[in-house]
Computed example of a mutant assay.
Amino acid sequence: MVPSGILVTGTSFAAFRGLHWGLQTLPAPGPAAKNPWKWWNICVSLLHSLLSGAGALLGLWLYPQMFFDPIHGHPPWTLALVAMSVGYFLADGADLLQNQTIRQAWDLLCHHLVVVSCLSTAVLSSHYVGFSMVSLLLEVNSACLHLRKLLLLSHQASSLAFSMASWATLATLVLFRLVPLGWMSLWLFWQRHHLHPALVVLGGGGLVVVGTVSIILGVRILVSDILRSRSHQHTTKRKETVGSRTCGGGSETVRADHRGNSTLSLED
């Protein structure tokens, strides 16, 4: 008899691959039509993040014992949620390999490999489900990341919606990515003598990879969306202010050209 976790993983893989294939037959909306595969791939990723992130929040809210016993204490449906996520990451990896080169997608493929390796431990053993549920809290931040990317593809970088998505991405990165990663790191450190060395190495390596990527991602978004945006707005306002003063006669410099005519030079 096939274990239920593997059965759910296979069903999830087939469902997400079918969703990839089905959506790619549709045109992407507006400016995203130039790269329809990317648009629909991110839409599928957003769907998974909403499902798994909401499921992790609900599960940990209803069953807080998973924090205190992340190895054994869990309701049956939480194992199905973890297995569903494994199926998604396998399906997304297959979609990346089909539509991009290894050079283009190596970072995402490495991320998916690490995540699948860690979550599969829970699926195959029916243990560490609580630990995996905490890791799925990261998908709350991933949902914001996917929404931000969709707005970028839609050429909405200057919109209020994009600004709100950027701030939400940074806030959830701290609350639902860095905080869970910190908790998992501390738990793994405290329990290292009671766990198999291979699990410690696998879990520790995965936390280092995901944690490093998360910090780099947060810095990039902070610089590109917040700091550069503010700098651009400040420069634009300064130019507009100077321009208005210039047009009002406050800083004109009249210069004679070589033909004796007067030209108006606006000084910054």
Rank of each mutant, 00 (worst) to 15 (best):
203 G>R: 09
204 G>W: 09
205 G>A: 09
205 G>H: 06
207 L>H: 01
208 V>T: 01
208 V>Y: 03
208 V>S: 03
209 V>Y: 10
209 V>R: 01
209 V>A: 06
211 G>T: 01
211 G>H: 02
211 G>L: 02
211 G>N: 01
211 G>Q: 02
212 T>N: 03
213 V>D: 09
215 I>S: 00
215 I>R: 02
216 I>H: 08
216 I>Y: 08
216 I>D: 06
216 I>N: 05
217 L>T: 03
218 G>C: 01
218 G>Y: 04
218 G>Q: 00
218 G>I: 00
218 G>F: 03
219 V>Q: 01
219 V>M: 00
221 I>S: 03
223 V>K: 13
223 V>M: 10
224 S>C: 00
225 D>I: 02
225 D>L: 01
225 D>G: 00
225 D>M: 00
225 D>H: 03
226 I>Q: 09
226 I>R: 05
227 L>V: 14
227 L>E: 04
228 R>N: 15
229 S>T: 09
230 R>S: 08
230 R>N: 12
230 R>Q: 13
230 R>C: 09
230 R>H: 12
230 R>E: 10
230 R>V: 03
231 S>D: 15
231 S>K: 15
231 S>N: 15
232 H>D: 15
232 H>V: 10
232 H>C: 13
234 H>K: 12
235 T>G: 00
236 T>S: 13
236 T>Q: 15
237 K>S: 11
237 K>T: 07
239 K>M: 06
239 K>V: 04
240 E>F: 02
240 E>A: 03
240 E>Q: 09
241 T>C: 12
241 T>N: 12
241 T>W: 13
242 V>W: 05
244 S>G: 12
246 T>H: 11
246 T>N: 12
246 T>V: 10
248 G>F: 04
248 G>H: 06
248 G>C: 07
249 G>S: 06
249 G>L: 06
249 G>Y: 05
250 G>I: 02
250 G>M: 11
250 G>Y: 10
250 G>N: 08
251 S>K: 05
251 S>H: 06
254 V>K: 12
254 V>Q: 11
255 R>T: 07
255 R>D: 01
255 R>K: 09
255 R>V: 13
257 D>K: 07
257 D>W: 06
258 H>M: 13
258 H>A: 14
258 H>V: 15
258 H>F: 10
259 R>T: 09
259 R>Q: 13
260 G>R: 01
260 G>N: 02
262 S>A: 13
262 S>I: 06
264 L>H: 13
264 L>D: 03
265 S>T: 12
266 L>H: 14
266 L>I: 11
267 E>Q: 15
